[in-house]
C-alpha cells in the first residue's frame, strides 16, 4: 500500500529580478495520504499547489520539513501527469511512451499500445505529437503516466489548458482508467467541478501554502457532472472558500 507523508513542509522562493520580495509558497503543511485513493488539492492560483506536487515528485527541494513516499516500506515509484503534454516532438507517440519506461522488453510496445487504447488512442501509436490535437496529446500524457505502473500518480491541473468539452471527455477517460488501476493519486486543480467529480478526498488550500479544510467525498463512481449530489458538494465547497476569504480579509484566519 502506498503512503505519502508530508510533515511541516515549507518552501520559500528567494527574491528574483522579477519578484523583489521572497515568496512563501508553502507554510508548514502537514498531510497524510494512504491507500488507493484519489486526493484532490484544491485552491486558487498561487497557493502553492504545484510547488507541493513538484516537491513530492522530487523535482524541487523543500526549504524545510519532509516528504516521504513509500510503498510497502520502500521508496514509492512516482509518475507525473503535467499541465502540458511534454512529449518529445521528434519521437512517435509510442516511442514517447516507451522512453519513460524503466525497463525495455518486447512487451513495452504492446503495453504502451494498451494504455493508449485505454484513453481511446489505439490507432495513433506511430504518429508524431505534432499530428495530434492538444486534447489527444494530453491523453498520451495521461496514458504515459499509467504505463510506468506507478505506486503514486501525481497530476498537475491536467485539463486546465483544454477547452471545457475536451476537458470533460478527458476527465471521463481518467475516471475510467483510474477506476481500473486504483493508483494512489494526488490531483492538483483550481476547478471545483473537477475536484468533486474525480476525488475521494478534497484538500483545500489558501494562499501562503496552508491547508484550511479537508473534505471526504463519499459518492459512487462513475460520477456525472449533472448529478445533484455533486452540485450540492460543489456549492458547499464554494461557500467554504468564501468564508475562508472573508476570514483572511478581516484578519480572523
Amino acid at each position: 500500500m502506498a503512503t505519502v507523508l508530508i510533515e511541516n513542509l515549507t518552501k520559500v522562493f528567494p527574491p528574483t529580478a522579477n519578484q523583489p520580495n521572497q515568496v512563501q509558497a508553502l507554510g508548514g503543511l502537514n498531510l497524510s495520504i494512504t491507500g488507493n485513493v484519489l486526493v484532490a488539492v484544491l485552491g486558487p492560483s498561487g497557493c502553492g499547489k504545484t510547488t507541493l506536487l513538484n516537491i513530492v515528485a522530487g523535482v524541487e527541494q523543500p526549504t524545510s520539513g519532509s516528504v516521504r513516499s513509500v510503498q510497502d516500506g520502500v521508496p514509492a515509484h512516482i509518475s507525473y501527469v503535467f499541465q502540458e503534454p511534454r512529449l518529445l516532438p521528434w519521437r512517435t507517440v509510442v516511442n514517447n511512451m516507451i522512453f519513460v519506461q524503466d525497463r525495455k522488453s518486447d512487451r513495452s510496445r504492446r503495453e504502451a499500445e494498451f494504455y493508449l487504447s485505454m484513453v481511446g488512442l489505439g490507432d495513433v501509436a506511430d504518429l508524431y505529437p505534432s499530428q495530434l490535437s492538444g486534447g489527444m496529446q494530453q491523453r498520451v500524457n495521461i496514458a504515459r503516466a499509467f504505463l510506468v505502473n506507478p505506486d503514486i500518480l501525481l497530476m498537475d491541473e491536467p485539463f486546465s489548458h483544454l477547452d471545457a468539452l475536451t476537458g470533460r471527455s478527458l476527465r471521463d477517460y481518467l475516471q475510467k482508467i483510474w477506476s481500473q488501476t486504483r493508483k494512489t493519486a494526488l490531483l492538483v486543480t483550481h476547478d471545483v467541478n473537477e475536484a468533486v467529480e474525480l476525488a475521494d478526498r478534497i484538500i483545500m488550500m489558501r494562499p501562503g501554502g496552508v491547508i484550511f479544510d479537508d473534505i471526504p467525498v463519499n459518492l459512487p463512481r462513475p460520477r456525472h457532472p449533472s448529478n445533484p449530489d455533486l452540485q450540492f458538494l460543489q456549492n458547499d465547497i464554494l461557500r467554504r472558500f468564501d468564508s475562508m476569504e472573508a476570514a483572511v480579509r478581516f484578519g480572523v484566519g
Binding site: A57, G58, S79, Y80, F82, R86, L88, W90, V100, L154
Partner: peptide, 30 residues
C-alpha cells in the same frame, strides 16, 4: 532544448544515458 522536457525526464527518473541519447541528441539533431 525545452526545459520542461528536462523536468519531465527528471520526474520519470529517465536514466542519464537514455536522456542524453534521446533528449539531448534527438533534440539537437535537426
Amino acid at each position: 532544448i525545452d526545459r520542461s522536457l528536462i523536468e519531465m525526464c527528471a520526474s520519470y527518473r529517465v536514466p542519464l544515458l537514455r536522456r542524453t541519447q534521446h533528449l539531448i541528441l534527438g533534440g539537437t539533431l535537426p
